[in-house]
Simulated scan of single mutants.
Amino acid sequence: MKNILVAIDLKGNEQPLIEKAETIARKFASKVWVIHIAAPDPDFVGYSAGPQSTRDNRASELREEHRRIESYTEALEKKGIDAEGLLVQGATIETILEEAKKLNIDLIISGYQDHGFFYKALYGSVSNAIIKASKIPVLIVPMD
């Protein structure tokens, strides 16, 4: 197992995923790819980006997300784990699977958090969708 992809949502609950990736990477001398899928640019999905202040705000959000991903990869590297971070804009499931294919990923690690009916109806479950669509093994880490 040479490459592990850890999909994080940057909601403050990433540590169990990073720790699981570290444990597995240490046993198999794997590289860890930490990925966060950011919402696509408004122009990409057919909407106007809005005034310059809106674009500046979005750019600031993306810089902060990138900084947080870098902090996770730097922490892994300090522990002797080869790690790299990715911040990619796009549709979550499709983008995770595309990146996994490009990077020759052997294992995808994702978190699962139980949500209520309305949340599931509106947003679905990223982990369930990855399991259904992936041809790559997926490790689901409970987040509750």
Rank of each mutant, 00 (worst) to 15 (best):
P16S: 14
P16L: 15
L17Y: 01
I18H: 07
I18D: 06
I18M: 02
I18T: 04
K20M: 13
A21G: 15
A21F: 11
E22Q: 15
E22T: 00
E22H: 14
E22A: 11
E22N: 12
T23D: 13
I24M: 07
I24K: 02
I24Y: 06
A25T: 06
R26T: 15
K27S: 12
F28D: 03
A29P: 01
A29I: 06
A29N: 09
S30M: 01
S30Y: 05
K31R: 14
V32Y: 00
V34C: 07
V34G: 04
V34T: 05
V34S: 05
I35R: 00
I37Y: 04
I37E: 01
A38P: 00
A38W: 04
A39D: 09
P40N: 07
P40T: 01
D41H: 09
P42D: 13
P42H: 10
P42R: 11
P42Q: 12
P42I: 08
D43V: 14
D43Y: 08
G46N: 11
Y47S: 09
S48M: 10
S48H: 13
S48L: 07
S48C: 08
S48F: 11
A49L: 12
A49I: 13
A49H: 12
G50M: 05
G50N: 02
G50P: 10
P51F: 14
Q52H: 04
S53Y: 02
S53H: 04
T54R: 11
T54P: 03
R55G: 04
R55I: 06
R55L: 05
R55M: 01
D56I: 11
D56W: 05
D56R: 12
N57Q: 12
N57H: 15
R58F: 10
S60F: 01
S60L: 00
E61K: 10
E61M: 11
L62M: 13
L62T: 13
L62Y: 10
L62E: 14
R63D: 14
R63E: 08
R63P: 05
R63N: 07
H66S: 05
H66G: 07
H66M: 04
R67M: 07
R68G: 03
R68Q: 15
I69Y: 11
I69V: 14
I69T: 12
I69Q: 08
E70T: 05
S71V: 08
S71K: 15
S71E: 15
T73R: 03
T73S: 01
T73K: 04
E74R: 09
A75I: 06
A75D: 15
A75F: 11
L76T: 06
K78R: 15
K78G: 14
K79P: 11
K79M: 09
K79A: 09
K79T: 04
I81A: 09
D82W: 00
A83E: 04
E84W: 00
E84H: 03
L86V: 05
L86T: 03
L87N: 03
L87T: 12
L87G: 03
V88D: 03
Q89H: 04
Q89G: 03
G90R: 06
G90S: 03
A91S: 14
A91F: 08
A91H: 02
T92N: 07
E94C: 08
T95V: 00
I96T: 12
I96P: 10
I96F: 02
